[in-house]
Design a binder for these strands. Structure first.
Length: 250
DNA sequence: TCATTAATCGCAC
DNA sequence: GTGCGATTAATGA
């Protein structure tokens, strides 16, 4: 029975490679959420899977936009190259998230770069096919719009944090963001980042992150063993910045 | 294990 | 707060 359906799918409804959206486990994925729609379902067969090894760059700043990526499995960092080669990490992304969406639409070239932080599998959709699907399915389009709105909101919050927070608060903010997004396993954040990557996100230097991290460790607000960093009490940790922000907001 | 790479510290600016 | 160079710790081939 199962073999039979699989054969039918293989004959004319199989994506060019890899995992089907129907069997995919990424519930948060925009495709998965809308898979009940016939438009989305039809469209989902036209993806291409792409395997990226740890450290591999799959979006190059300035390269022409042909489509966009969904993360099937793995973790990714998105960044922009700033003045004198310094990286500015825009965001981190995990399973089910969209990468390269900003280049979508009227933009011709990517304004960001993306690198796999661990071995990652990506679902690639061509720009033209996605546009067609979006025109046909309003719910799908609406979901994408919500995603854009959320991204914009986060991006604005980040502008505030960089311009108004102290370095210490920015590092704390970064730690909170990463732990909220990737969670903690065995008391440590489920993502190993170098001090430089924390710095690139917080908008500081590697040395500054190292110094602040060791202070936070002394204050028992975090635990750190090499690249593994853990936050024992997230609520307590949050208070470190929310107190200050209270004054900023009023 | 040894060699490479990352983290840390101290110091000058 | 930032940036450089030396030292030390961690990682992985």
């Amino acid at each position: 029975m199962q073999l039979n359906t699989e054969n039918i799918q293989r004959s004319h409804r199989m994506p060019i490679s890899g995992v089907l959206c129907t069997t995919c486990e990424n519930v948060e994925c925009l495709m998965k959420k809308n898979i009940a729609s016939s438009v989305v379902s039809e469209f989902s067969y036209k993806k291409t899977d792409l395997n990226c090894k740890k450290g591999q760059q799959f979006i190059m700043e300035g390269a022409p936009v042909n489509g966009l990526f969904f993360i099937l499995k793995g973790k990714v960092k998105v960044f922009r190259t700033g003045i004198n080669g310094r990286e500015q990490i825009v965001r981190f992304a995990k399973e089910g998230e969209i990468i390269g969406h900003r280049g979508f639409g009227t933009e011709e070239y990517y304004s960001i770069s993306a690198i796999a932080l661990e071995n990652t599998t990506l679902c690639y959709f061509s720009k033209n096919l996605l546009q067609e699907a979006l025109k046909k399915d309003a719910t799908f389009t609406y979901d994408l719009m919500l995603f854009y709105a959320d991204e914009l909101n986060r991006s604005e919050a980040k502008v505030k944090s960089i311009s108004q927070m102290t370095v210490r608060e920015r590092v704390i903010d970064t730690l909170l963001y990463v732990s909220r997004k990737f969670g903690q396993v065995n008391g440590y954040i489920d993502l190993q980042l170098s001090r430089k990557e924390y710095a690139d996100y917080a908008g500081t230097t590697e040395e500054q992150v190292i110094r602040i991290l060791s202070v936070l460790k002394k204050e028992n607000l975090i635990i750190a063993k090499g690249k593994r960093i853990g936050i024992p009490d997230v609520q307590l940790f949050k208070r470190e910045i929310s107190e200050h922000n209270f004054y900023l907001d009023t």
